[in-house]
C-alpha cells in the first residue's frame, strides 16, 4: 500500500448526501478479478450517458476536475454495499482523499486499507471547502496527515481527527495482516480455549 503523508491537489465538489457505493461503482462493473481498472467506471451512471458518451454536466468530466485527487461531499458518504471496488475505483481514478461530514462504517474502513484518507469535518466546514473546490484549478487544497490539518487556498488551516493506529498504518503504508500475524501465539491460545469451551464451533 502506498503511504499517505501530504497531498496537495485539485478537489472536486460533489455536493450530495448519501452517496452510496452503488453510485460510486454500479454492480455490473464488479466482475473483474483484480484490483485495477475500476476507475473508468467510477460514478458510471452519472459520468456516461446511455449511449456511452461522457455527460459534460458531471463534475469529473469537467476541467480541471478530471485530475481531482480530493473529493468533497456531504453526509453519509459511502453508504450501502460493502464493495471495496468503491475505494478501488476512486483510487484508480486518482482520488486519495475524501472530505465529508461523516462516512458509512464499512466504506470508511475500506478506505484506510487502500491508502485513501477519509477526513470527517463538520458540515459548515465542508461547505466552505466545497466553495474552494468550485474555484477549480487555482484553488488547490493540501491535506497533511502528519500534522492532521487541511490547508485551504487562503492559507487557513483546519485541524481534523483521525484514529492514531490507522494514521500510523497509513503514514507508513503498512499491511495489517503482517502486523496481526505477530499475534499468532495469542490466536493459537484463544482457539485452544474456545475449542474446549465451545467444541461445536470446531468441525
Amino acid at each position: 500500500m502506498k503511504p499517505f503523508t501530504t497531498l496537495t491537489g485539485i478537489a472536486a465538489p460533489l455536493p450530495k448526501a448519501n452517496v452510496d457505493t452503488d453510485q460510486i461503482i454500479p454492480a455490473r462493473f464488479l466482475k473483474a478479478i483484480t484490483r485495477s481498472g475500476f476507475g473508468k467506471n467510477l460514478f458510471a451512471n452519472f459520468r456516461y450517458r446511455e449511449d456511452g458518451s461522457e455527460n459534460p454536466d458531471f463534475v469529473l468530466n469537467q476541467e480541471p476536475y478530471r485530475k481531482a485527487e480530493i473529493l468533497i461531499a456531504f453526509e453519509n458518504f459511502g453508504c450501502g454495499s460493502s464493495r471495496e471496488h468503491a475505494p478501488w475505483a476512486l483510487l484508480d481514478f486518482g482520488i486519495r482523499c475524501i472530505i465529508a461530514p461523516d462516512f458509512a462504517d464499512i466504506f470508511h474502513n475500506n478506505c484506510f486499507k487502500n491508502g485513501i484518507l477519509p477526513v470527517k469535518l463538520p458540515r459548515e466546514i465542508c461547505e466552505k471547502l466545497m466553495d474552494d473546490a468550485r474555484m477549480g484549478g487555482n484553488a488547490r487544497l493540501t491535506v497533511d496527515l502528519e500534522r492532521q490539518v487541511v490547508v485551504r487556498p487562503n492559507g487557513e488551516e483546519i485541524p481534523f481527527q483521525v484514529d492514531p493506529l490507522r494514521r500510523h498504518l497509513l503514514l507508513n503504508g503498512l499491511d495489517d495482516i503482517g502486523q496481526t500475524l505477530q499475534h499468532a501465539p495469542a490466536i493459537d491460545a484463544f482457539e485452544a480455549k474456545q475449542r474446549a469451551a465451545q467444541p461445536w464451533l470446531y468441525a
Partner: peptide, 10 residues
C-alpha cells in the same frame, strides 16, 4: 457484519 475485500483477506 459485512467487511471489505482487504478484511476478507485478513
Amino acid at each position: 457484519f459485512g467487511i471489505g475485500t482487504s478484511e476478507v483477506e485478513h
